[in-house]
Deep mutational scan, measured.
Amino acid sequence: ATVHVKGVTYHFDNPEQAEKFAKRMAKELNGEVHVDGNTWHVD
């Protein structure tokens, strides 16, 4: 799974980790999470 945060890409072997990371980053950055298959975007 892949997480894109403000133009930076993070790779996770575990999709659950990717989801938790994306949601945590969105919270910290006051952003929104969008999911597209195995790819998470934090804007």
Rank of each mutant, 00 (worst) to 15 (best):
N30T: 05
N14S: 14
E28Y: 10
K20C: 06
Y10A: 02
A1N: 08
A22N: 00
A1K: 05
D36A: 09
V3M: 01
K23H: 13
G31Y: 10
H11K: 08
A26D: 01
N30Q: 09
V3K: 00
N30A: 07
H11Y: 15
E28L: 13
G37E: 05
T9S: 09
D43P: 03
A22Y: 01
K27F: 12
T39D: 13
M25Q: 05
A18N: 00
L29I: 10
P15Y: 12
F21H: 03
E19H: 05
N38S: 07
E28G: 05
H41A: 05
V8A: 08
T2Y: 14
Q17I: 09
V35P: 04
G37Y: 03
A22W: 01
A18V: 00
H11G: 04
T2W: 14
V8W: 08
F21G: 01
H34R: 14
F12R: 00
F21E: 04
E28S: 07
G37I: 03
V8D: 07
D36K: 11
A1M: 08
V35Y: 13
V33L: 12
F21S: 01
F12W: 03
E16Q: 11
E19K: 06
H11S: 07
H4N: 11
L29A: 04
D36F: 12
E32G: 07
A26T: 03
K6T: 07
T9G: 04
E19L: 06
E16R: 09
D43K: 09
K6I: 07
N38L: 08
D43V: 15
F12G: 00
V42P: 02
N38G: 06
E16L: 11
E16P: 04
K27T: 09
H34Q: 06
N38T: 08
R24K: 14
A18K: 00
K23T: 11
K20G: 08
V3A: 03
D36H: 15
F12Y: 03
Q17F: 07
Y10G: 01
A26G: 06
A22D: 00
H11D: 05
K23S: 08
G31D: 03
N14H: 09
H11T: 09
Q17G: 07
T9F: 11
Q17Y: 07
V42L: 03
A22F: 01
K23I: 13
F21L: 03
A18I: 00
T39V: 15
V3F: 01
N30L: 07
E28M: 13
F12S: 00
E16F: 09
V33I: 13
N38A: 06
H34Y: 13
N14P: 01
H4S: 10
G7Y: 04
D43I: 15
V8H: 11
V35K: 15
T2L: 11
A18L: 01
K6V: 06
N14V: 07
A1Y: 15
A18P: 00
T2G: 03
K20P: 02
D36Y: 10
T9P: 06
T2A: 09
D43C: 15
T9Y: 13
V3P: 00
V5L: 08
G37P: 02
M25T: 05
V35R: 15
K27G: 07
P15G: 09
F21W: 05
V3T: 01
T9A: 11
N14M: 07
N30F: 07
V5R: 02
K20A: 14
K27W: 10
V42D: 02
N14W: 07
T39G: 12
N30K: 10
T2K: 13
V35A: 10
D43N: 10
H41D: 05
E19T: 03
K27Y: 11
V3Q: 00
G31L: 15
K20E: 15
H34T: 08
R24S: 12
A22M: 02
H4T: 13
H11M: 08
N38K: 06
G37D: 05
Q17E: 15
G37W: 02
K23E: 12
K6N: 15
D36L: 11
Y10K: 03
V42F: 03
F21N: 02
T39E: 15
N14L: 09
D13P: 11
G7D: 07
V3R: 00
H11F: 14
F21Y: 06
E16H: 09
T39N: 15
H41Y: 15
T39P: 01
F21I: 03
H41L: 12
H41E: 07
G7T: 04
V5H: 04
V5I: 11
T9I: 15
A1L: 06
N38W: 08
P15V: 11
W40H: 03
R24A: 14
D13N: 10
F21R: 01
W40M: 06
K6W: 10
Y10V: 05
M25D: 00
A26E: 03
A1F: 15
V8L: 11
A18G: 04
G7S: 05
H11W: 14
V3D: 00
N38E: 06
H11A: 07
G37V: 03
E19D: 06
E19C: 07
V33D: 02
K6P: 03
G7M: 04
K27D: 09
K20F: 08
Q17P: 04
E19S: 05
K27S: 10
M25A: 06
M25Y: 04
A26L: 03
D43G: 11
V42T: 02
D43E: 13
F12E: 00
T39K: 14
H4M: 13
H4K: 13
H34P: 01
K6A: 13
K6H: 12
V8N: 08
F12L: 02
M25L: 09
D13V: 08
T2P: 01
T39M: 13
M25I: 11
A22Q: 01
V5G: 02
E32A: 12
P15L: 11
T39L: 06
D13L: 08
T2Q: 11
F21M: 03
G31W: 11
V8K: 13
G31N: 03
A26Q: 04
G37M: 04
H4A: 06
K23M: 13
N30W: 05
F12P: 00
A18D: 00
P15C: 10
K6D: 14
G31H: 04
Y10E: 01
D13G: 07
E28R: 10
